[in-house]
Simulated assay, not measured.
Amino acid sequence: MTAKKKYTLKKRKSMGSPVWLNLMYVPALLLFCVFIFYPFFTGIKISFTNWDGYSQAFSWVGMENYKRMLSDPNIGTVIKNTLIYGVGSTLFQNLIGLFYAILLNQSIKARGIVRTIVYLPAIISPLIMGYIWYFFFQFDGGALNDIILLFQDKPLNLLANPELNVWIITFVNTFQFIGIAMVIYLAGLQSIPTDFYEAAELDGASPSKKFRYITLPMLMPSITINVVLNLIGGLKLFDVIVALTNGGPGYASQSLSTMMYKIYFASQDAGYASALGNLTFVLISLISITALIYLRKKEIA
Rank of each mutant, 00 (worst) to 15 (best):
N81I: 07
E198V: 01
N230I: 03
S267F: 14
L70A: 13
I241R: 00
N246V: 01
Q268L: 09
I293F: 09
N94P: 11
V172L: 08
S257L: 01
T8M: 11
I147D: 02
I223R: 01
F175D: 10
L23G: 08
G250A: 08
M129C: 15
G271C: 02
D203G: 02
M220D: 10
L295H: 07
S59K: 06
G271S: 05
P193H: 12
V242A: 05
A275L: 02
I113G: 09
F211R: 03
G204S: 06
P162T: 10
I128C: 11
L127Y: 05
N226Q: 05
A252K: 06
P73G: 04
T82G: 12
V166S: 02
P249D: 08
A101P: 05
L286T: 15
E299L: 07
T82W: 04
A273E: 08
S222A: 13
Q268K: 13
I84N: 07
F238R: 00
I169G: 04
W60S: 01
Y294F: 15
E201F: 00
L189E: 08
L91N: 10
L144H: 08
T245S: 09
S208Q: 14
G233A: 12
D195E: 13
D239C: 05
K5D: 14
L292V: 11
L279D: 01
G76D: 09
V172M: 08
T174E: 11
L279T: 00
R111E: 09
I132C: 13
N65R: 00
M63H: 12
K5P: 07
G53L: 00
W60Q: 01
A301T: 14
Q152C: 12
P249W: 02
I108G: 07
P73H: 03
P121R: 03
G43Y: 01
A160V: 11
N278Y: 13
I46T: 10
V227W: 02
A266R: 15
Q176M: 13
I84G: 06
I79E: 10
L256A: 00
L229Y: 09
F99I: 12
M182W: 05
L91A: 15
T42Y: 11
L144V: 10
K236S: 15
Q106I: 06
I289A: 10
P207W: 00
G248R: 02
N50G: 09
I96E: 09
L127A: 14
I263D: 11
L150K: 14
I293Q: 14
